[in-house]
Simulated scan of single mutants.
Amino acid sequence: MKAAFVGKPGPVEEIRFGELPDPVPALGEVLVDVVVSTVNPVDTFVRNGMWPVPGPWPLVLGRDFVGHVVDAANGFAAGETVWGNSLGHGGRQGAAAERVAVAADRLYRLPAGVDPFDAVAVLHPATTAYLALFTHGGLRAGQTVLVVGGGGNVGTALIELAAAAGARVVATASAADLGHCLSRGADVALDYRRTDLPDGIDLFVDTSGTNDLETAVAHLSFRGRIVLLAGPRSRPVLPAGELYLNDQSVVGFVISRATAAELADAAAALNERFAAGGLRPRVVERVPLAEAADAHGRMERGELHGRRIVLVVRNVADPVDS
């Protein structure tokens, strides 16, 4: 099979596109013909060694995919359209390949009528958003969430998922993105440069990685929460006194450490939104799988500006070799 892979951690020049043996599914796994994959920032962290992984080497890159089940196995029927978002780390080979073997508890059916290109583009940011809001943030209907960076991919998903859950959503973004935030469900959209943020925030989520905890704590409600999901090199000042006097908390999480059960909960929520016509990406660029190295380079250089790259492994109508 064709795949995009690396022999060891390193710069983008380490990426190779070529032949690797087809995966052989182990007990509890399902063999899938991949239609589309994508590139996330965390994929570049795995490739360059910032996020160390145990291999196996050579390591196929990529977390996310949509594809079709090859043979009936572990409750899945041959031909079913499925997706997953936790390959390429934790000892698992990645998704940037023509075929993948996926643990059945990390594989989910894609609702009928959902475009695979749209779906794969939002799997990672939307799952990140769900885990931040509900698994780690404990958001409930009627509470207020402040989303910093509402115009980005994770920010957009945070807004939509929080609004769908009955929360009041305040988003900050660039002036050009305020209308977008409102269209995805934000009740209030503010220019990110404004300092007059509202008080009484139950959940504060900063997608920018700035992690201005002084500002966040100043606007939290009693027992308000801050969820950190970006900014691996940030070293913010923490107003510990105000935090503990108001029963407030700060929690960090990274999607790479999410359990299979947590990812399955997120998948159910994503599929519900997919089926309702939600969680659609803003801008998608389709490129061949052979251009995975170029996609990694563009992401690392900051050239995408919110654009989601979808790696086209095979055309949807293409015949599949058995």
Rank of each mutant, 00 (worst) to 15 (best):
K8E: 13
V53N: 05
L203W: 00
V312L: 00
L279V: 02
L243M: 09
E214H: 06
E300Q: 10
S221L: 03
V217N: 06
F117W: 07
G166K: 08
S174T: 09
L270T: 03
N211Y: 03
V34D: 01
L245T: 10
P288Y: 04
G209D: 03
P52N: 12
L182Q: 06
L110N: 14
V100C: 02
Y108P: 02
N74M: 01
G84A: 11
V46E: 08
R225H: 12
A163P: 01
V250N: 04
R99I: 13
A189R: 02
V66K: 00
L158V: 00
G149F: 07
R282D: 05
A167G: 10
V102Y: 03
L238Q: 04
R193F: 05
A96W: 06
A129W: 08
S221N: 13
V170P: 01
S322V: 03
H136M: 05
D212T: 00
A267H: 01
A96F: 05
V12F: 03
L31Y: 13
V147S: 15
D118A: 12
T259L: 10
D196V: 00
D202H: 02
M299T: 02
L139S: 13
A78H: 07
V66Y: 04
A189Y: 11
T156M: 07
L133S: 11
T195W: 00
L245F: 06
G231F: 03
L213V: 05
G75T: 11
S256L: 15
A119V: 09
L213R: 05
E291F: 09
V42W: 05
V147Y: 14
E272A: 12
I201F: 01
V35S: 00
V254E: 08
V154I: 12
E14N: 13
W83V: 13
D265H: 01
F65I: 15
E262R: 04
C181L: 08
T156S: 15
V69A: 01
L139K: 11
L289P: 14
T81C: 06
L161Q: 11
A96C: 15
F5Y: 13
V69L: 01
R298H: 11
D33L: 08
E98F: 15
S322I: 03
T127Y: 12
A72C: 07
G209M: 07
V237I: 02
G152A: 04
Q143S: 10
T127L: 14
V69Y: 01
A121L: 02
L107E: 14
G306L: 03
G306W: 08
A3C: 09
T81A: 06
I255S: 15
H136A: 04
A260T: 01
G277E: 10
E285M: 12
G62R: 07
R225P: 13
E242T: 12
V46W: 05
G150I: 06
V100W: 00
L146P: 02
D199R: 11
D115A: 07
A275Q: 12
H89S: 08
D118V: 12
D191Q: 11
R184N: 11
L245P: 03
M50I: 04
D196A: 04
K2T: 12
V36K: 01
V147G: 14
D202L: 02
P111Q: 03
V316D: 05
N211V: 11
A293R: 09
A112V: 14
I159W: 15
C181Q: 08
